[in-house]
């Protein structure tokens, strides 16, 4: 079984994000990390690969940098990676991203494509559905559980008030929530092996994708701030201040 997992390298969320003053897009340092959201997709991919004699190929678009984020996913156990890094793609919109990912996935056969529900830095939450349409496959989205039963993928699809069990025959695209599985931590052996695993680097032209003029950021402004509030360090009586505020607001 061939499994492709869409993973993104993002600037470390632990350090503050910055916008480029000219392009108004996110500044991406040389060293990026694997988007935490995508660790769930990688884990689901690895579990399906274990159960169904499969391989997991990572597919990514964005500045490759030192490939730290991709190696993090390889260290978890993915078998290889394709990354599309192209100056012409910087700041591209969701649809261009999806075209690139779909073209990279289509270079090989695939049974299952896995993605996160929304990326940490872009969070458009539509790239996977666009990829599914471009690949002409069903999308089983917002999965809290994923299983392959008799050539069909079955998921529990999170809904506003519970979940639906949804299934479709292979090939399919699945998006997974961060509640779906507990991602494994890379082992020392995994980290060493990741250094030797194949990473294909491609350009947009090699895939035959030309970035379209989809959308353009015209301004970034600072939102009105909330006035700073009162801080009380609890020495046993702070709850009384909460009661007072509730009284003033007339909710008690």
């Amino acid at each position: 079984m061939k499994i492709a997992v869409c993973v993104k390298q993002i600037p470390d969320p632990a350090s503050p994000y910055e916008l480029d003053s000219e392009t108004l897009t996110l500044v991406r340092p040389n060293e990026q990390v694997l988007d935490d959201t995508d660790r769930y997709g990688v884990e689901v991919g690895l579990q399906l690969a274990d159960q169904h004699e499969g391989t997991v190929t990572l597919v990514s678009m964005g500045p490759a940098g030192n490939l730290n984020g991709i190696r993090q996913a390889l260290a978890m156990g993915a078998h290889g990676a394709v990354i599309v890094d192209d100056e012409a793609l910087h700041g591209s919109d969701a649809l261009t991203t999806a075209k690139v990912l779909a073209a990279a996935i289509k270079r090989d056969e695939f049974d299952v494509v896995i993605a996160g529900t929304e990326s940490t830095d872009g969070y458009s939450g539509v790239v996977p559905q666009q990829v599914a349409e471009l690949l002409s496959v069903p999308a089983l989205t917002y999965a809290k559980r994923v299983a392959i039963v008799d050539g069909s993928v079955q998921i529990d699809r999170q809904t506003a008030g519970g979940y639906d069990t949804v299934e479709a025959p292979l090939p399919v695209l699945v998006t997974v929530t961060s509640g779906v599985v507990e991602p494994r931590y890379p082992t020392f052996k995994g980290i060493m092996e990741a250094k030797k695993k194949p990473i294909d680097q491609l350009t947009a032209a090699e895939l035959g994708v030309s970035p379209g003029p989809g959308q353009r950021i015209v301004s970034v402004t600072t939102a009105p701030e909330r006035a700073s509030g009162e801080i009380v360090v609890d020495e046993g009586e702070a709850y009384l201040r909460i009661v007072e505020v509730l009284e003033q607001a007339k909710v008690i």
Binding site: A94, L95, A98, S124, V126, P128, Q129, E133, L134, A160
Partner: peptide, 24 residues
């Protein structure tokens, strides 16, 4: 609306029409 099902429809539609969708 930015809800699960509408996101799914909008994403697929965007690819079909070859037009961007602006989210959030």
């Amino acid at each position: 609306g930015q809800t699960y099902t509408s996101r799914d429809v909008a994403g697929r539609l965007s690819a079909r029409l070859d037009r961007p969708v602006l989210a959030n």
